[in-house]
Amino acid sequence: MPRSPGQRAGLTSEAVLAAAREVFAERGLAGLSMRAVAAALGVAPNALYSHVADKTALVDALLDDQLAALDPPPPDAEPLTGLREVMLATYDLLGRHPDMVPLYLARQGARGPRARALGAAMTVLLARLGVGDDAAGRVVRALIVHTLGYAALATADDADLRPPELRADLEVTLDWLLRGAVEAPRS
């Protein structure tokens, strides 16, 4: 069976992602490029394109890779508790990787398979609360934006409130959002 150009270079998607993670950690988003990742791997830049389409796809893969640390809420979880816990776990994850927060904000979240799985699990819980598909998409988006906003505040260099105080605020405001989502008239 013929191999693709990236396979001939001995690359795997995991190796490309690991090198991208290292380049990003060392140089930030401005220094993350296909050329820099290829140099870190000791290959020509075109060898990467068998594994990732472009820099945007590489950033999306980095973001989605971070979500591997999160477990989707089980479908039989108490819905409000499951939704709340996945958002708090997301906040905690972002707090451990503050350099990634600006990327999540810039990309408006993550788009990869792990992000889709988390969104699907959240939608199942929302359906159990009587929230239909159209409204569920808006609720999931609101929860993500809300949580990203709190993570951005917590990881800011000049934050007035410390991450534990912000997390406590997030716990309260997530409850407000979730109650509102369940009680709001559907349109």
Score class of each variant (00 low, 15 high):
residue 4 S to Q: 04
residue 7 Q to K: 11
residue 8 R to E: 07
residue 9 A to M: 08
residue 10 G to Y: 06
residue 10 G to T: 08
residue 14 E to T: 12
residue 15 A to F: 00
residue 21 R to Y: 13
residue 25 A to Y: 09
residue 25 A to F: 02
residue 25 A to N: 08
residue 26 E to A: 15
residue 26 E to N: 12
residue 27 R to C: 09
residue 28 G to T: 15
residue 28 G to R: 15
residue 29 L to P: 02
residue 29 L to R: 10
residue 31 G to M: 04
residue 32 L to W: 07
residue 33 S to C: 03
residue 35 R to S: 11
residue 36 A to V: 12
residue 37 V to E: 01
residue 38 A to Y: 04
residue 42 G to P: 05
residue 45 P to E: 03
residue 47 A to C: 06
residue 48 L to N: 01
residue 60 D to S: 02
residue 60 D to E: 02
residue 63 L to Y: 05
residue 67 L to C: 01
residue 70 L to Q: 14
residue 71 D to M: 15
residue 72 P to M: 03
residue 74 P to R: 09
residue 75 P to H: 13
residue 78 E to W: 11
residue 79 P to R: 09
residue 84 R to V: 04
residue 86 V to G: 09
residue 86 V to R: 13
residue 90 T to P: 02
residue 91 Y to I: 05
residue 91 Y to A: 06
residue 94 L to F: 03
residue 96 R to E: 15
residue 96 R to G: 09
residue 100 M to H: 00
residue 103 L to E: 08
residue 105 L to F: 06
residue 106 A to G: 13
residue 106 A to I: 03
residue 109 G to F: 03
residue 110 A to Q: 01
residue 113 P to K: 14
residue 116 R to I: 11
residue 117 A to M: 10
residue 119 G to W: 01
residue 120 A to M: 13
residue 121 A to I: 06
residue 121 A to L: 01
residue 122 M to Y: 07
residue 123 T to F: 08
residue 124 V to S: 04
residue 125 L to F: 14
residue 125 L to C: 13
residue 126 L to F: 11
residue 128 R to I: 07
residue 128 R to M: 11
residue 133 D to S: 12
residue 133 D to W: 11
residue 137 G to F: 02
residue 137 G to A: 08
residue 141 R to W: 13
residue 142 A to V: 12
residue 142 A to F: 12
residue 143 L to P: 06
residue 153 L to T: 03
residue 154 A to F: 00
residue 155 T to G: 05
residue 156 A to L: 00
residue 159 A to C: 15
residue 159 A to Q: 15
residue 159 A to T: 14
residue 162 R to K: 14
residue 164 P to Q: 06
residue 165 E to T: 10
residue 165 E to R: 12
residue 165 E to H: 10
residue 165 E to N: 07
residue 168 A to E: 02
residue 168 A to F: 09
residue 170 L to K: 12
residue 171 E to A: 13
residue 174 L to Q: 01
residue 176 W to H: 10
residue 178 L to K: 00
residue 178 L to W: 00
residue 178 L to T: 05
residue 187 S to P: 14
